[in-house]
Amino acid sequence: MPTILSIDDDPWVVETLKIALADKGYEVIAAPSAAEAEQELSRRKIDLVLLDLGLPDKSGFALYRDCAALKRLPVLFVSGCSRSFDADSEEFVALWTNEFLQGTTDILYKPFNLDTLYEKVEALIGDQEVTEREPAA
């Protein structure tokens, strides 16, 4: 079962993601801060990270830029503010032209419907239901 790390300090969002993604065969674990996220990333195998921008101890962009473990994983930014993804921001442009350009990072704007969430997750790490139906090679 693929493991998804949700880095978000809003327990309602995390609970929604847990329930919704469990239905599709994913396990969701939560980290409410950047520090706890880095701990989880160092001790578990994570397949995908859902990353909020507004964390209590660090911005999501700063965590994405600074955390080496995060750079090796597919990342889905989950944000309520499209204006944060601003080509006028030097910090964001540096991320866009480096990390985003690897092709393994996507953006999901809140509020979102579950179909869009599933589509974006499956496009990053694959459809778990389909995978389980596929015969072993």
């Binding site: 930014f77 499209s82 993804f85 990072t105 996507d106 974006k120 496009a123 990053l124």
Partner: peptide, 27 residues
């Protein structure tokens, strides 16, 4: 399935190079 994910990745790179807002599209 892996090949399909690789295609998604290549498609995202093409969108990113053109500064397309990924949050407004799905692939």
């Amino acid at each position: 399935r892996l090949r399909d994910i690789d295609i998604n990745c290549a498609a995202r790179r093409i969108l990113v190079r053109r500064w397309i807002d990924l949050g407004k599209t799905s692939l």
